[in-house]
Simulated scan of single mutants.
Amino acid sequence: MARRPTIKDIARQAGVSESAVSFALNDRPGVSQDTRARIRRVAEELGWQPNSAARALSGERSGVVGLVLARPAHTLGVESFFLQLVSGVQEVLSAARTALLFQVVEDIDAECAVYRRWWAERRVDGVLVVDPRTSDPRPALLEGLALPAVTIGEALSPDSGAAAGPGDGRGSSPAHPVTLSSVRADDAGAMAQVLEHLYGLGHRRIVHVAGLPGLAHTVRRMESLRTEAARRGLGPDQVRSVVTDYSDAEGAAATRRVLAEPDPPTALVYDNDVMAVAGSAVAAELGIPVPGRLSIVAWDDSALCRVTHPRLTALVRDTAGFGRLAAEELLAVLAGSPPGVRISERPRLEPRDSTAPPPAHT
């Protein structure tokens, strides 16, 4: 088996002592510039890299950040959101020569256990936290561990119904001190766009096929739907949400249930692209034309939405850019910046072939 090069190997080939190699590779005084350059050249030729575990034990950064995902594993393989998010994160981390340690767990308790283990082992310098919960133990845990973190999404608060403003600056409101950094998307404003579009077309019976009920962004979307519906005089018997696990199977099952009702909805809004495509397939199976009798909107745009027939109206957002923003914020915190808030650009609704006015008799 190939053996990893050591400081002893570098010293032997460069013709210097091991202490001189240590000085040179750690930018410490004690060797001449010519010797330092020769040692580094030999280290590069041998393919030497510093031992991240040893660096962490000595108090240096490990060069690794962590991401734990507590979601049903079967929902991840078909949903494009996390793949795009991680690609944006990785783009920034790669440029900074920082690795990403990724783990999927079964629930929030297991996620907290991973954070404790990583902290005890000095495995990561900081973490990216996804899917803020309605009752979330993670912020307090991470603050107690003094483990730098950036939350991707906004936790619920007493003023959570307020829409976030557009922009991509870094800052925090003095009225609400920030203890953990976060990057946020305007879920309430996005849902308002969707309802405005469907209401403008004439829809008065709308069902939102939502994701996991314990997630803060799910609650925020549901609250926005109710608020916007009430502003237009529509009650809960006309506009409502049903929850799922984000999978195509549950999206299809929810679609069957609501379309079998005595007064079925004329429009469905799905919390991801996979469920929207599954719902469109169910409508076709039931002989319900889209958009002739049923309009469909997908929350996240993807290739699925654009190649499905009819092409699905969808909310377009830069998910990879959202990931880049989160990684940039975490690197800034690790470099000594105070915790802050970054707001991503508001998603925009792109009407396509799947939305149209409802039939006149409805």
Rank of each mutant, 00 (worst) to 15 (best):
A278P: 00
D263C: 11
P357I: 08
P347D: 04
Y246G: 03
G321L: 06
S337H: 13
S247F: 04
V341T: 15
A320M: 08
Q238A: 06
T308N: 11
D245Q: 01
G340A: 15
D273N: 10
E285S: 05
P338L: 03
A284H: 14
R348E: 02
V277N: 09
E328T: 00
V277Q: 07
V290Q: 07
A276Y: 05
G251Q: 01
P339L: 02
L286H: 14
V274E: 10
A278I: 02
V316H: 06
P347H: 00
P289M: 09
A252N: 05
V316M: 08
E250L: 14
R352A: 07
S280E: 07
V341E: 11
R257F: 10
T255H: 05
V290L: 06
A281R: 08
R293Q: 15
G336W: 01
P262G: 06
T266L: 12
L259C: 12
E250Q: 15
D300S: 09
A356R: 11
C305V: 04
L325G: 13
D245V: 03
P289H: 10
S337I: 01
L286N: 14
W299V: 09
L330P: 09
A284W: 07
A254G: 04
A276P: 10
S354P: 02
V307Q: 15
T355Q: 05
I343D: 13
L268E: 11
E328Q: 00
A284G: 15
G279L: 06
R257N: 12
R317A: 12
R352L: 05
D300P: 03
D245R: 02
